[in-house]
Design a protein around this nucleic acid. Structure first.
Lengths: 228, 228
DNA sequence: GGTAAACTACAACGCACGTTGTAATAACGA
DNA sequence: TCGTTATTACAACGTGCGTTGTAGTTTACC
C-alpha cells in the first residue's frame, strides 16, 4: 500500500528559462504530488523531478522548505480554482439577468453539472483539498483560515448573493437565509459525488453523476422553488 | 492475520492481562494516532506508547506491520461505528412503528441531531475516515471497497429502507428513489457541518450545528414531505 | 511452586528523506 | 566578450522510523 508508482523520469516538458516559469512549474508539480501522496509521503525529490528542476533550485525558489512550499501551493491552487468557480457561477446564473421562470431548472442543472465537472477538470486541486482536510490538525489555524477565506468562503458568499437575487425576482423562496440555500444547493448536487468518487480521484460513471446531479436539482427546487 | 476482538470492554487505565485486551488497546490507540496524524506521519512507537504496550507486542499481535494494522483498524472502527449508527437509526425511526404525521419532523430532527453528534462521540473514527479519504490512492481497491461495504453502504441501505417504509405509510414522497432520499437527508443535515468542522476535529458552536441541522430537516421535508 | 506463554527493554540494521554546501556549467544582459 | 545570475549534479550530514532479534521478566494457570 505504501508504494509510490510514479517513476522518477517523469519530467514532462522543460520549464522555460525565466524565474517565473520555474516557480510556476514547481507550484504545479507540488500541487500534483502533494495531492496524490499527501504532505508526509510527498518527497521533495519527487516534486523537483515532476517539475523538471533540481532540488537545489526548488530550495532557491522556496527558502522555507517543504512546509512553506505546501502553504504556498495551498494559496496558489485555491485562488486559481476560486476564480474558475466564480466564472462558472456567473456564466450560468448572472445575478443581473435572472432567467425566465421556465428556464430556471435548466440553468440550475447546467450550473450543477459545471460544478461537479470542476472536480475532474481540476483533479489536482481537489486532491490537494482532500489532503488539506487530513492535514488540518497540522496546519496553523491562521493558514487554514486564510485558505478557507480565499477559496470556499468567497465562493459561498457569491453563491448566496445569487440565491438572494433569484429570490428577489420571485424565482426562489430562500426562507430568509440565502446562504443556507446556497449551501443546500451544493450539498444536494455535489456532496454524494464528492464522497463516492473521493473528490474526483476515482471517477464515477458519467450517467451516474448525471443522475445524481439531476435528482439533486429537482430536490432543491422542491425545497426552494417559489411558491405559486 | 490477526483479528481484533470486538468486545467493547474498554479498560480505561491500563490494558488488562489477556490477549484480547492488548489487541483492543492497540486498535483503539492506532485509531486515535492514525486519525490524528495520518498514515505516514503516525509512528509505530507513538501507537504503542498510546496503547501502553511495547512495540514488540504490537508486532506480535499484528505481524503484517504498519500497513496491515491500518487495514485492521479500518475494519474495526467501521464496524463499531456502523453498529452505533444503525442503533440510532432504529431508535429514532423504527421502520415497524412509523411516527404519527405530526411527530415526523420532531423525529427526523432528533435523528439528525443524533447523527451529527456521532461526529463528536466518535471523533477518532471520523478523523480516521478523513485520513482514509486522503489515503485512498494508496489503499488497495478491494480493501477500500470492503470498508465501504462494511460501513457507509450498509448504513445507507438501512436508511433507504426506512425512507421506503415512511413512504409506504404516506409520511414521505420519495419520488421512487428511497436511496436518493436517504442520501439527500444526510447531505442536507450533515454535509455542511462535516466540511466546516473538518469531520468533528474543529467543533462548531452547538447553536450553529443546531441551526444547520434544523434548517436541513426543514428543507428535507419541503423536498420530500408527503403531498397533502 | 513450576511451567509456558506473553510481555518488555534494548540494541541494531537499513533505508528514505529534508536540508545544506560546493564547484561546475549554462543563460542572459551590457 | 565579460560578468552576473540562475541552475545543476553531487556529496554529505543528521534524523526519524519500520522492523527484527535477543535476553530477561512478568503473568496466568495447573
Amino acid at each position: 500500500m505504501v508504494g509510490v508508482a510514479s517513476d522518477a523520469g517523469a519530467r514532462r516538458t522543460r520549464p522555460g528559462r525565466g524565474r517565473a516559469d520555474k516557480a510556476a512549474a514547481i507550484a504545479r508539480a507540488a500541487c500534483e504530488v502533494f495531492g496524490r501522496d499527501g504532505y508526509s509521503r510527498a518527497s521533495i525529490d519527487a516534486i523537483a523531478a515532476e517539475a523538471g528542476v533540481s532540488t537545489r533550485t526548488l530550495y532557491n525558489h522556496f527558502p522555507g522548505g517543504k512546509a512553506e512550499l505546501f502553504r504556498s501551493v495551498m494559496r496558489w491552487s485555491a485562488g486559481r480554482v476560486r476564480d474558475e468557480q466564480l466564472a462558472r457561477l456567473r456564466r450560468y446564473l448572472d445575478p443581473h439577468r435572472p432567467p425566465r421562470p421556465e428556464d430556471l431548472e435548466r440553468d440550475l442543472l447546467a450550473l450543477a453539472r459545471a460544478w461537479v465537472a470542476l472536480m475532474t477538470d481540476f483533479r489536482d486541486h481537489f486532491s490537494l483539498v482532500r489532503q488539506i482536510q487530513g492535514e488540518a490538525g497540522h496546519v496553523p489555524a491562521e493558514v487554514l483560515d486564510a485558505w478557507q477565506e480565499a477559496g470556499p468562503r468567497a465562493v459561498a458568499r457569491e453563491m448566496a448573493e445569487i440565491m438572494a437575487a433569484l429570490a428577489d425576482h420571485g424565482l426562489l423562496d430562500v426562507h430568509d437565509d440565502p446562504a443556507q440555500a446556497a449551501s443546500h444547493f451544493v450539498a444536494l448536487t455535489a456532496a454524494e459525488i464528492a464522497q463516492r468518487s473521493y473528490w474526483g480521484v476515482v471517477p464515477l460513471p458519467p450517467e451516474e453523476t448525471d443522475r445524481i446531479t439531476a435528482a439533486g436539482v429537482r430536490a432543491f427546487l422542491r425545497a426552494y422553488g417559489a411558491a405559486h
